[in-house]
Design a protein around this nucleic acid. Structure first.
Lengths: 135, 135
DNA sequence: CTGAATCCTTGTTGATACTG
DNA sequence: CAGTATCAACAAGGATTCAG
């Protein structure tokens, strides 16, 4: 199943030599598309924050998902996790240069969506309208 | 739960005026991160293809998922669906200018991943290694 | 050929409760 | 405070089957 993306990647100017790139691309792409990842990254864009603060700022996220997202991002080197040996415990998360870099890239997509949102919404209305207006 | 992304969007230079943008951003971002969307878009970058051809080219995709993905993309105006009244039936899918535009944007992310993949993989190894080397 | 409908398996998520 | 563990609910995905 790699061949498709591989060849298209090549067409897009991406060197097709490394087969594992395909998996990784999808992997990272999936992470970028993840509901909470975007929120975490954009929320941390201003500066380091601790767990609870993130939990408050990103309304709707459960401890479980936040913890999980944070760990994945830290694992990929997008975030740093700094635990202070205090009482009560304090842990701060911050974007790494790599994370900031991804943040910038994501911003491109965000801008694209913003630039085309009206068009997309209109397309959906037309599509849905055409579907239900036929019977 | 909009406030987080909203404010960060603002920080990123995106006008925060439209509240529905947040949902849409996540919606489109999720679609972009979708396993099959990327494959479909990149596969169609070369030119129009019919259903079966796509099914063949994108190995691993089920009819169900392909059909579903195609419909979503068509609904958003990213693809055109042209059915020819022939026997046997023939349907061709092609990128719209909007779809091509998104394709270009996605390519940015793909390039980012490609540019940083070694770093990410190494980060993961370090992270995983540090975790299992402690006991 | 295209694709919708069905069924069934698996993975993901949130709520809750508990630990260092 | 900062998580982890467990469980139940739900959604996503694939295989198969049928229809236009």
């Amino acid at each position: 199943m790699d061949s498709a993306l591989r060849s298209q990647l090549a067409a897009a100017g991406v060197t097709p030599e490394c087969a594992s790139t395909i998996e990784l691309v999808r992997d990272v792409l999936a992470r970028v598309g993840d509901k909470w990842t975007v929120l975490v990254i954009t929320t941390l864009a201003d500066g380091p924050l601790r767990f609870t603060t993130l939990h408050e700022r990103i309304a709707g996220v459960s401890q479980r998902m936040l913890s999980q997202t944070l760990r994945s991002l830290t694992r990929d080197g997008l975030l740093t996790r700094t635990a202070y040996a205090e009482v009560p415990p304090r842990v701060e998360y911050a974007l790494t240069p790599l994370g900031r870099s991804l943040s910038d890239t994501v911003t491109h997509v965000v801008r694209w969506v913003q630039a085309h949102q009206i068009e997309i919404v209109r397309n959906r209305e037309v599509f849905d309208g055409a579907g239900s207006a036929a019977p």
